[in-house]
Simulated assay, not measured.
Amino acid sequence: MMQVPQRLYSMDELRLNGIEASSLLSPVDATLGSIERNLQLAAALGGPAAWNVLGFSPQEVLYFSLGLLFLWTLDSVSFDGGVGSLVLDTIGHTFSQKYHNRVVQHEAGHFLIAYLVGILPKGYTLTSLEALKKEGSLNVQAGTAFVDFEFVEEVSLFSLI
Results as ranks from 00 to 15, higher is better:
residue 82 G to R: 13
residue 12 D to S: 14
residue 81 G to A: 01
residue 95 F to E: 06
residue 95 F to W: 10
residue 37 R to S: 10
residue 95 F to D: 00
residue 9 Y to R: 03
residue 68 L to R: 10
residue 51 W to A: 08
residue 9 Y to A: 01
residue 39 L to R: 01
residue 11 M to F: 13
residue 96 S to M: 00
residue 41 L to H: 03
residue 91 I to C: 14
residue 86 L to Y: 06
residue 39 L to N: 02
residue 82 G to L: 14
residue 21 A to C: 08
residue 22 S to H: 14
residue 62 L to Y: 09
residue 15 R to G: 08
residue 10 S to Y: 02
residue 92 G to V: 01
residue 15 R to N: 14
residue 79 F to G: 06
residue 14 L to P: 09
residue 38 N to E: 06
residue 14 L to H: 08
residue 19 I to Q: 13
residue 88 L to E: 07
residue 41 L to M: 00
residue 14 L to E: 02
residue 12 D to I: 13
residue 26 S to W: 14
residue 61 V to L: 11
residue 81 G to W: 03
residue 93 H to A: 04
residue 15 R to L: 15
residue 43 A to W: 07
residue 64 F to W: 11
residue 14 L to C: 12
residue 40 Q to C: 07
residue 72 W to G: 07
residue 61 V to W: 08
residue 49 A to D: 03
residue 61 V to H: 09
residue 21 A to N: 06
residue 22 S to E: 15
residue 65 S to K: 03
residue 9 Y to D: 05
residue 66 L to I: 09
residue 39 L to V: 01
residue 94 T to G: 07
residue 31 T to I: 00
residue 33 G to M: 09
residue 83 V to A: 12
residue 35 I to Y: 13
residue 98 K to A: 08
residue 74 L to C: 10
residue 77 V to N: 06
residue 65 S to N: 04
residue 40 Q to K: 07
residue 31 T to D: 12
residue 50 A to Q: 05
residue 11 M to R: 14
residue 53 V to S: 08
residue 72 W to I: 06
residue 62 L to M: 10
residue 29 D to P: 07
residue 11 M to S: 13
residue 39 L to H: 01
residue 37 R to L: 14
residue 62 L to S: 05
residue 53 V to M: 10
residue 48 P to Q: 05
residue 83 V to K: 10
residue 86 L to D: 01
residue 35 I to F: 11
residue 72 W to L: 13
residue 29 D to Y: 12
residue 19 I to H: 11
residue 36 E to N: 10
residue 38 N to T: 00
residue 70 F to E: 06
residue 66 L to T: 05
residue 9 Y to L: 06
residue 10 S to A: 04
residue 66 L to N: 07
residue 86 L to V: 05
residue 13 E to A: 13
residue 60 E to M: 07
residue 56 F to G: 01
residue 34 S to W: 15
residue 21 A to F: 14
residue 44 A to L: 15
residue 45 L to K: 09
residue 93 H to Q: 13
residue 12 D to H: 12
residue 33 G to C: 00
residue 37 R to F: 08
residue 25 L to F: 14
residue 30 A to M: 15
residue 49 A to G: 00
residue 31 T to P: 11
residue 96 S to R: 04
residue 78 S to D: 01
residue 57 S to G: 02
residue 57 S to H: 01
residue 93 H to C: 07
residue 37 R to D: 00
residue 75 D to L: 03
residue 66 L to E: 05
residue 49 A to E: 05
residue 41 L to V: 04
residue 82 G to C: 10
residue 83 V to I: 15
residue 28 V to W: 08
residue 73 T to P: 03
residue 94 T to S: 09
residue 20 E to S: 14
residue 74 L to N: 06
residue 63 Y to R: 10
residue 68 L to D: 02
residue 83 V to C: 08
residue 35 I to M: 04
residue 14 L to K: 10
residue 83 V to H: 09
residue 17 N to I: 04
residue 45 L to G: 12
residue 69 L to Q: 14
residue 57 S to T: 02
residue 26 S to R: 14
